[in-house]
Write a protein that binds this DNA or RNA. Structure first.
Lengths: 222, 222
DNA sequence: CTTTGTGAAATTTTTCACAGCG
DNA sequence: CGCTGTGAAAAATTTCACAAAG
């Protein structure tokens, strides 16, 4: 019944597309040339019909009776999920978490280029991390302007999260991945995604509690 | 129309409840004694009606004309989102990310107690991290049995993710927070949540692209 | 015979709107 | 009045089911 926007991909679909991408890469390494929606669904933990529905948003080019050409599908996904050229990425916060993330082995493979590691603590400025030198946070606007970076990872303590977000926005960054355990507010046009350990742990815990509960009690009406 | 299970909280609601909790803590520090659903919604980035709907799952006790008592609400949330006693938590992988996560300042506050840091690399075993000694992964089952731990964070490279997950499951762990950049498969009854940097970055990027696209093109019918 | 692609149904989640309490 | 609490409507998402294609 959604007759409005035809070029829009629902967010849950989007999240799955990334999982498909990961699965497809692995399958390709394993020598596969094609995949069926059923196989892809099984590997990605979802159902065949949903896979097809998801892929239908991409005007994808499967072959009936055979499945999807793996490389074609990967190409389509790559195009849909973002341009192929490395996207500049910045990390703000050179504490343990920031440093660990800077060493994350996946960025290059995923099409990101980690451009800088910033911190407002002078004691940390100048340290060498993952082939980069930690720079002072005040240099952030300059770097953003020079490189056209749009994405940053916030890896600072909760107490500094909001000011860091403000700094990023002022510097011209437009997408923030916030690892601080508290939400931050940003003006319209800026997007934040919360990587909240606590939230994930709680959901995990809840799901476990639910499962255990369901195993113990047969039902529970209000 | 969902007349089936009455004691079940939808997952999106659950995720928001955690945000509410964070907001409420901040508001309390700021001296507030009560909140209205509208205020809470504004702070948490959602709408008043949805806040009330969410809270209605908890049989919460707001006062009409006034709002919700902040401390009462926090108590209700704490009870709903998990028992008050510290839940044991284990980290598998003592590389940079595992170490950083071990130093994460929020676990205690959130009701978790980090019990152990494990690694299968002998070179890392014995190192002191965040007040803990890194132990060999083979000791994992023992620790799980002794402490009744159910939750673990997987912080290993992608290539080791699946075997690590298998190890955790075999050891008796039931909820896994996977930081490795690839999904893992687990048997039924075990819950995994993917903390996928790449996925989040891609979604962020997509949202930005969308926003930019929408600003440029007015519409795009099929 | 297998598998895609897709309307339509079913389900889930959000928004609306308002009765009812303080 | 202001604000909660909650059915009912609306919207979004997933599942179903099947025609069409190789």
């Amino acid at each position: 019944m959604a007759e409005g926007k035809e070029g829009v991909i629902p967010e849950p679909t989007l999240a799955r597309l990334h999982r498909y991408q990961a699965v497809l890469r692995r399958l390709r390494r394993e020598g596969a040339l094609t995949v069926s929606s059923e196989r892809l669904g099984e590997e990605a933990g979802t159902e065949a019909a949903l896979v097809r529905k998801d892929l239908s948003y991409l005007r994808c080019t499967g072959q009936r009776g055979i499945g999807y050409d793996l490389d074609t599908l990967l190409a389509v996904l790559r195009e849909a999920l973002g341009p192929a050229e490395p996207r500049p990425l910045i990390i703000v916060g050179a504490g343990p978490l920031g440093v660990a993330l800077a060493g994350y082995a996946g960025f290059e493979l995923l099409g990101y280029r980690l451009l800088g590691l910033f911190d407002s603590n002078p004691a940390r400025v100048g340290h060498h991390v993952a082939g980069l030198v930690v720079r002072h946070a005040r240099e952030l606007p300059e770097t953003v302007a020079e490189t056209g970076a749009k994405l940053a990872i916030i890896a600072v303590p909760a107490a500094r999260a909001q000011e860091t977000a403000d700094l990023c926005v002022a510097a011209g960054l437009r997408g923030l991945l916030n690892f601080a355990p508290c939400p931050v507010k940003v003006p319209p046009g800026v997007v934040v995604r919360q990587m909240d350990l606590s939230e994930e742990l709680e959901i995990l815990n809840y799901q476990l509690t639910c499962a255990a509960h369901r195993a113990a009690n047969p039902a529970r009406g209000g």
